[in-house]
């Protein structure tokens, strides 16, 4: 199955989309922290040298400079790895961006165990927790390159702060090109009756694979909650009232992740359903050239998902 799937780079989609948007929108700026090639912004820097600000390896200042630029009316993207931004600069994001209502987008690449060989320091598993908690901050985690382009466009049109989570490797393309992206809306990738799987990011491909494996035995409803904050409460509640069973899968810590957000939503809505949260459980990552080995080790692979489905059905 996986071999047949077409792969594409989420980072390339981000860089190309932002460069295209910047041709039309002269207010789009990038503040870089010495990672422009990795964030696929070399073309942006060549085409718009006056709108590409290189701040060096200094995330706190880069974020503050971005906030200052934004307060003069610009839309500013701070592009880095998620293990540095929003990790090192969290207090600056809180005060200089969120509290001051600065139109800055934090773009954090290399999120999750998918960073593979780079190891624990570069496998950011806490970014969603850090960004969800901040007032005024919106949080997005695209599932593939197609959706990355759509979310990049959507947040470039918004005046609010946002966090955009990207991953390192090329990942399967499965987001239907016809679907548009709306902030606060999730997408039902597949309609089903027996169990709801909700996730964000490329790991959703595993859920689609699970349905292929289970063929006609079970019908899974698979929801892409790429808009983690604001969360599409309506779609999620509607699905769970129908299926009555929930698995949340995400390449992030259990604590503070999407699963926790949905569990909170269910409790507040007086909706009680059997629930399994597949995520990293209070541990650090480690190196592996092939991240699928890490997914096996941390129970995020297809077998783990199939086991969870079996447990609930």
């Amino acid at each position: 199955m996986k071999n047949k799937t077409k792969l594409a780079s989420i980072r390339q989609a981000f860089g190309d989309t932002l460069t295209a948007l910047a041709s039309k929108n002269k207010n789009i700026f990038v503040v870089s922290v010495d990672l422009k090639s990795s964030l696929k912004l070399t073309k942006f820097a060549q085409k718009f040298p006056h709108r590409f600000i290189e701040a060096g390896v200094a995330e706190n200042n880069a974020t503050g400079v971005a906030a200052g630029l934004a307060k003069t009316g610009k839309t500013v993207f701070v592009a880095s790895f998620s293990c540095f931004s929003p990790a090192i600069n969290w207090a600056v994001i809180k005060q200089s961006i969120c509290y001051n209502h600065a139109n800055v987008k934090i773009v954090g690449s290399h999120a999750g165990l998918m960073s593979g060989a780079l190891g624990a320091t570069h496998q950011m598993l806490e970014d969603i927790a850090l960004m969800r908690v901040l007032p005024n901050m919106e949080v997005f985690s695209p599932a593939d390159a197609t959706e990355t382009a759509k979310i990049t466009t959507a947040i470039s049109h918004s005046r609010r702060p946002a966090y955009l989570r990207l991953v390192r490797p090329d990942t399967p393309l499965f987001f239907p090109p016809k679907l548009s992206f709306t902030i606060g809306k999730s997408h039902i990738l597949q309609l089903g009756q027996d169990l709801t799987i909700i996730g964000h990011g490329p790991i959703l491909d595993t859920a689609l694979q699970a349905q292929v494996k289970l063929k006609n035995k079970l019908s899974l409803e698979i929801i892409n909650a790429s808009s983690i904050k604001p969360l599409d409460q309506k779609t999620i509640l509607h699905s769970l009232k129908k299926t009555g069973k929930l698995i949340v899968v995400e390449d992030h810590q259990k604590i503070g992740g999407l699963g926790e957000a949905i569990a909170h939503l269910l409790l507040e809505s007086n909706l009680s359903v059997p629930f399994i949260h597949l995520a990293v459980d209070n541990q650090f990552g480690q190196s592996a050239k092939d991240y699928s080995k890490l997914y096996q080790h941390y129970d995020l692979d297809l077998d783990s998902l199939l086991r969870a489905i079996k447990k609930l059905t």
């Binding site: 600000i53 706190n60 200042n61 974020t63 503050g64 400079v65 971005a66 906030a67 200052g68 630029l69 934004a70 307060k71 003069t72 610009k74 207090a91 600056v92 809180k94 005060q95 200089s96 001051n100």
Partner: peptide, 17 residues
Amino acid sequence: SGSLGQGLSFATGLALA
């Protein structure tokens, strides 16, 4: 402001703009 050390970066962003 209130958390020290941040304002000069913000001012720098304004001056650059």
